[in-house]
Amino acid sequence: MTTAATAAPAVSPVLRVAPAAPAEAAAYFRASLVFHADVSDVAAALSADGDPGFVLLDSRSTASWDQGHVPGAVHLPTALIPEQAEQLLDKSVPVVTYCWGPGCNGATRAALALAELGYQVKEMLGGFEYWVREGFEFETWEGREQRDADALTAPVDAEDCGC
Rank of each mutant, 00 (worst) to 15 (best):
P82V: 06
A25N: 09
A23P: 02
G53N: 05
E86L: 10
M124A: 02
N105R: 14
T140F: 10
G135D: 03
R30Q: 13
A79R: 13
R109E: 14
P155V: 07
E145Q: 15
R109G: 09
V70A: 02
Q84K: 13
M124G: 00
A31Y: 08
P9C: 04
A31W: 07
E123K: 07
L15W: 09
G68M: 06
P94C: 05
S47I: 07
Y28E: 14
P22Y: 08
A110E: 00
V17W: 08
M124K: 01
A154H: 11
P52K: 02
F54R: 07
P82S: 09
P9F: 09
P155A: 06
G106A: 06
A79W: 09
G143R: 12
R16H: 10
L56V: 06
C104Q: 01
L57R: 02
A149L: 03
V121P: 00
Y130G: 02
H36S: 11
P22Q: 08
A37E: 09
R133S: 14
F54G: 00
Y119N: 01
P77F: 02
E24R: 10
A151S: 15
V96N: 04
L112K: 15
L125R: 14
V39Y: 03
G118I: 02
G135V: 00
A85I: 03
A10F: 08
G118R: 08
V132L: 11
E129N: 15
A27C: 05
G101K: 01
A107L: 04
C163A: 13
E142Y: 12
A23F: 05
S64C: 12
V132E: 13
T153W: 14
E139A: 15
H69C: 06
A79K: 13
A110G: 12
V156L: 15
G53F: 01
V74Q: 08
E139T: 12
I81P: 01
A31T: 10
T62I: 12
E142T: 13
P19N: 07
A26C: 09
G53M: 05
S59K: 05
S12E: 06
A10Q: 11
F138S: 06
E145G: 11
G118Q: 07
A107C: 11
H75C: 07
L152N: 15
